[in-house]
Design a protein around this nucleic acid. Sequence first.
DNA 1: ATATTTTTTTAGGTTAATCTAAATTTTTTT
DNA 2: AAAAAAATTTAGATTAACCTAAAAAAATAT
Lengths: 220, 220
Amino acid sequence: MQNSFTEENYLKIIHSLSGREGAEVSTNALAESTSTRAASVTDMLRKLAEKGLIHYKKYQGVRLTPEGEKVALKVIRKHRLWEVFLVEKLGFGWDEVHDIAEELEHIPSDRLVERLDSFLDNPQFDPHGDPIPDAKGNMPKPDYLKLSEVPPGGKVLMMGVLEHTPSFLQHLDRSGLTLGCELEIREINDYDKSIVVLLSSQRTLFVSQEVSKNLLVQRL
Amino acid sequence: MQNSFTEENYLKIIHSLSGREGAEVSTNALAESTSTRAASVTDMLRKLAEKGLIHYKKYQGVRLTPEGEKVALKVIRKHRLWEVFLVEKLGFGWDEVHDIAEELEHIPSDRLVERLDSFLDNPQFDPHGDPIPDAKGNMPKPDYLKLSEVPPGGKVLMMGVLEHTPSFLQHLDRSGLTLGCELEIREINDYDKSIVVLLSSQRTLFVSQEVSKNLLVQRL
DNA sequence: ATATTTTTTTAGGTTAATCTAAATTTTTTT
DNA sequence: AAAAAAATTTAGATTAACCTAAAAAAATAT
Ligand SMILES: [Mn+2]
Ligand SMILES: [Mn+2]
Ligand SMILES: [Mn+2]
Ligand SMILES: [Mn+2]
């Protein structure tokens, strides 16, 4: 019994919405994320429960079973490996690869994934800083913090992003913010929580809270 | 109006069955090739005709329209480029790549195809010797002959295969027959049309008609 | 503790791609 | 030119993934 394209997407979204605590995910949240209606979600949840991929009791939200989690992590692994391929080998920008990877992630061949992984030299992170699960489904969960949570004077490295929209990523490009770059928080404006950071190039940069809430960093 | 996975497969199969004369393809032939029933084919033909991708009059078989041919060639281009990628970059054998390429060929991004093409250094032929259409849909049609048609004494280069099944390709591997290898026809057994060929390694090899009918060669 | 609002499920349809069985058209054979 | 056979189309279902509208359950507010 193979899982369909649609089923895989549901599992991936349940995984992402339930966070690392494995919290319950609501029907409405899934309708929102899948761009469908709640009634359609209910149909699909019955099917996934039937297949043993989720725990589901009417009116009580869903969680992945271990089996469902395995499938979700495999899809996430493929998504992120293909993103690395598109950026590292084909020269795409990090703002261009998500939609293509949404399609590639459903190509079903274990041998393909493992060979792709080797070809890319077993990358640990995708172009957006997200960790790549290994073949067994182990995914490191680095505990980064948001740039918006760093106090003034702090020096940090930029490690990832929480928004993956092309417009957000292009904005970062224009600001000179790339993964791995070093930032020092110079001041935080109390009024709008915007911050002034110093880049390693000695340039200073204004960063709105809108942006700083979506940047993951690591203290130096 | 995007073409579905299924529609693309029909167009590709119609292209391949109608040959380079653009001959009409029958409903039954399509049912056979798509592993469906004739009734299902009729439904799909009405839809493709509706979309202007095929010429179709009841009971009279189908041909691609120029628009349909364009779509078919694009799918074939993607299929063959992905096969090159799988063999050249990921190290798959030529017997392993067809099924994976059947899936990859439907990934819909023109930018992806063109970047893949560059990454592979604009290959002209796929791992089975089939020509790869260019971005505009021009596909060279080399006129090879079958090994079974070459008279005794002839020296040829092996240029392609007509069978793409793993078992046939693996048989060629075991026989030491690879694309580009040189063959000299030593004798043809009248009884079963099997032939004895001399390889450039000076090894002699028996080739059944079953096999020689499916090998494309070029005279030296 | 009720009443109201929100969330979720059920009921009943739709569309794409398939199917089987029956009807029709075309082709081949006598 | 009939009759028989083969190919094709039509009729009527089925399944997956969706939908809207209505009913039911849970959560929230009075
Ligand atoms: Mn992505
Ligand atoms: Mn990513
Ligand atoms: Mn192939
Ligand atoms: Mn090929």
